[in-house]
């Protein structure tokens, strides 16, 4: 399976997470084609909310930065794995910025899905989504429920489903790679 791993960790802040992701990557490459994006090392600007990608250059962001290659990999994947340690009960700002910049892949037109207003699809096929996180000392069930609910909605907005969500704290990279293989 084609997997894109989008790592929103800051290695300067959390080396342990970085090492874990390298080990996970080493496991995944045995059975999958993996493309790895390290957001900290890339140039990805904050979304300006200009709607240029819907109104001026349909499907394309006005910024010419590393997000273009990330979107190409994203759309050619079977599974996209977002990865980040939790910071104040939510994945990193770095990771969230990469979600904000995904709006060129959907259409400005709206439709009603599940009785709610949503945007239509722009592409025929979208990858399944997964989320890998590291708990903080105080992460509890309520936090996990909130994150799951938000990412379920994010996946739905990007015409996909959240098929995998886990924490690296109590699992080995081998175990996680095995579970991902069944997604």
């Amino acid at each position: 399976m084609n997997i894109t791993l989008i790592n929103g960790n800051d290695p300067g802040q959390n080396k342990g997470f970085e090492d874990y992701m390298s080990r996970l990557n080493n496991e995944l490459v045995h059975n999958h084609d993996v493309e790895w994006f390290h957001l900290q090392a890339l140039s990805i600007k904050d979304c300006l909310g200009c709607f240029g990608c819907w109104q001026k250059t349909p499907g394309q962001c006005i910024f010419k930065d590393d997000m273009a290659s990330l979107i190409i990999a994203y759309l050619h994947s079977d599974l996209v794995l977002f990865a980040s340690p939790l910071i104040l009960g939510f994945p990193s700002a770095l990771l969230k910025t990469s979600h904000d910049r995904l709006i060129p892949i959907i259409h400005p037109y709206t439709e009603i899905k599940n009785g709610e207003l949503h945007h239509e699809a722009r592409y025929k096929k979208y990858p399944k989504l997964g989320l890998l996180m590291e708990k903080e000392v105080d992460t509890d069930e309520e936090d996990i429920k909130i994150i799951t609910d938000i990412y379920t909605r994010i996946a739905f907005s990007f015409k996909s489903a959240l098929v995998y969500l886990t924490f690296i704290n109590t699992k080995s990279p081998e175990e996680i790679a095995h579970e991902i293989g069944h997604c």
Partner: peptide, 20 residues
């Protein structure tokens, strides 16, 4: 803040992280 993809924008999350 405006809602971006079902949550606060990355930029706003960065601000929240500073409030630690």
């Amino acid at each position: 803040f405006p809602l971006y993809t079902n949550a606060m924008q990355g930029r706003v999350k960065r601000f929240l992280e500073m409030l630690t």
